[in-house]
Nucleic acid binder design. Sequence first.
DNA 1: CGCGTTATTGAAGGTCATCAAGCCGAGTGG
DNA 2: CCACTCGGCTTGATGACCTTCAATAACGCG
Lengths: 232, 232
Amino acid sequence: MLTQTINTQAINTQVRGKIAPAHPVTDQFGAITGHVGLVATEFSYRKDEEIYGEDEPAEYVYQVITGAVRSYKLLSDGRRQIGAFHLPGDVFGLESGATHRLAAEAIIDTTVRLVKRASLEKAAGVDVQVARKLWAMTASELRHAEDHMLLLGRKTAMERVATFLLEMDRRLAVAGMMALPMCRRDIGDYLGLTLETVSRALSQLHTEGILGFSGARQIVLRNRQRLHNLDP
Amino acid sequence: MLTQTINTQAINTQVRGKIAPAHPVTDQFGAITGHVGLVATEFSYRKDEEIYGEDEPAEYVYQVITGAVRSYKLLSDGRRQIGAFHLPGDVFGLESGATHRLAAEAIIDTTVRLVKRASLEKAAGVDVQVARKLWAMTASELRHAEDHMLLLGRKTAMERVATFLLEMDRRLAVAGMMALPMCRRDIGDYLGLTLETVSRALSQLHTEGILGFSGARQIVLRNRQRLHNLDP
DNA sequence: CGCGTTATTGAAGGTCATCAAGCCGAGTGG
DNA sequence: CCACTCGGCTTGATGACCTTCAATAACGCG
């Protein structure tokens, strides 16, 4: 139960949308919380801790401050499809309907800001700009899902891994290096592959000099052009 | 250019959201056009005609009156992923951003209602209920996309076909029979399979007595329970 | 430094794609 | 009326790509 967890672990810091956003220009949450003056709370989850489950009531909307989150669906036999990774600055858990369509877990120790969904709904009823922003955020998720359907339905294993690397490079590269928060299995479940296939593709890219490793999760792209060529 | 086409082919019927909706209760479009009094126009496309292209400016929002539409993305080498089929009553082409993220084509001869996107945006600025409805429609598309990512990433060929049949059964079965508007290649491109694999799966289901054919596209489900069992 | 977790690599096999041939049904014209 | 045609569908044979199973290696956290 989330409420319970909050009571026991919440940092109890009430903020008014003034915390430095991870993506100052594009910040999708601060724009709202700042504008309408909503009360946001910070909260932390440990590695692999569940944030909410599939089909749970959607009581809160979240923004990653630090860490990383995976959103996923499961089949009854345990097969998993990760629909999205949420990195610092990203909003997740926003629903138009009553429940979360995917479950969410912290990939590593993670701190989030959260606001009550009801207060956002209320703000949207007063301020059309807020309503517009909520729509735009859902539309942005839809765009990602549509791109990902193309990847899952029609790209080869190598193409999927190339697309993944370029996405992560864009979203979390610092000084030309990316520190992946997720394991090979997470990557596989995101790309519709097994972890072994992901590992083989990365090894091949390494052999070809397209990327370099410093530890399995620290990757440097040495030739973005050739990676783009692998991504049709 | 859509405007051009409209001038030459439009039926020039201006309606005020009073056309009998295909899904009376759930009608997502009439609720808006009726409520705000937007002007809707009817328009027809012939089989395989393009309605709009990928990355084209999103000037109109559409609702299928009769016929069927496929929304899809292409890779540079022609591989295609169909993201959704739009059947009578369905709204499609709704965008929060400036452009269409997928192309749309008529699968068979199709008539649509359309309203200018700008007028919807304007209505949303005045009436919060309209803004809420636009958001809900995009969220509904997102839900479908998330379910479809699970299918594309993690289900077997037979499971995909079973899911497809149950979806189509729900959406277009009349008197226990469904008349599929799309060919095997469309189904394959929707499910991330080849048309041959789709055909083989359907043949197997036929052999097992789970479905019956009257022509390749007229299908009767004879045992929904066993089909559900194939869909984890 | 040591141990458990995570990643890599290898070998074998299965599922689905590809290539190919034939069939079916609807529309057409002799 | 029926042969013809053409697009769509089915079915078969083969093989590629990716998964599965297995063993070793590397990492990282205490």
